[in-house]
């Protein structure tokens, strides 16, 4: 891995951490608060692609694990991996990878803006919502023994917020591609 890719991943990890420092917001039509940190995970894939995006997310989780309170709400330490929602953290790694993998294949600079935006959205939706929730719900069901369908029911309230984030990630992905393109990966 060339130094530039390592630095890009590290810088994006810092961006994900900063997004986690912002206060979570309540939207009227969604019953749970939404944080910007998981938006950062989608953005990592959308902006950096599969490999570098996944490394950025791994760095955030590593820094949380060794005892810095870098996850949203000031969470950190090994204890965050003992929560029933740990599956979502593990899923972040896969989410960034899948989002990035799809972006690298679906999007290129010659496409029209609308095509790019829709492709980014599909990639963020599959990676950042479908894959993420597959990990999160499976883990929740295993840890609590409540079964998949009930775990799904318990997670349902968070899905609208994450779909909304996929829209923001797609628009941001398009803007970044116009301003400072990093996809398709050069390394």
């Amino acid at each position: 891995m060339v130094t530039r890719d390592l630095v890009l991943a590290a810088l994006f990890a810092a961006i994900i951490i900063v997004l986690g420092l912002l206060p979570s917001i309540m939207l009227g039509f969604i019953p749970v608060p939404i944080t910007a940190q998981s938006l950062g995970v989608m953005l990592a894939g959308v902006v950096l692609g599969a490999k570098r995006g996944m490394i950025a997310v791994l760095l955030v989780l590593l820094i949380a694990a060794i005892g810095m309170p870098v996850l949203s709400g000031g969470r950190g330490g090994l204890a965050v991996f003992a929560a029933p929602t740990t599956g979502y953290l593990i899923g972040w790694v896969a989410a960034a990878f899948v989002t990035g993998f799809l972006c690298e294949r679906l999007v290129n600079r010659e496409q029209a803006g609308l095509v790019q935006g829709v492709s980014f959205f599909i990639a963020a939706l599959i990676g950042g919502v479908v894959v993420l929730y597959a990990f999160g719900i499976t883990y929740l069901a295993l840890v609590t023994g409540m079964g998949l369908s009930k775990a799904f029911l318990g997670s349902l309230a968070f899905i609208p917020g994450d779909v909304l984030k996929a829209v923001v990630a797609a628009l941001a992905g398009r803007a970044v591609m116009a301003g400072y393109p990093l996809l398709p990966q050069r390394a």
Binding site: A10, L11, A14, I15
Partner: peptide, 12 residues
């Protein structure tokens, strides 16, 4: 890279 991230969080 862990050092880099910790160094750049305040800057971001």
């Amino acid at each position: 890279s862990v050092g880099l991230v910790i160094r750049f969080v305040p800057e971001v």
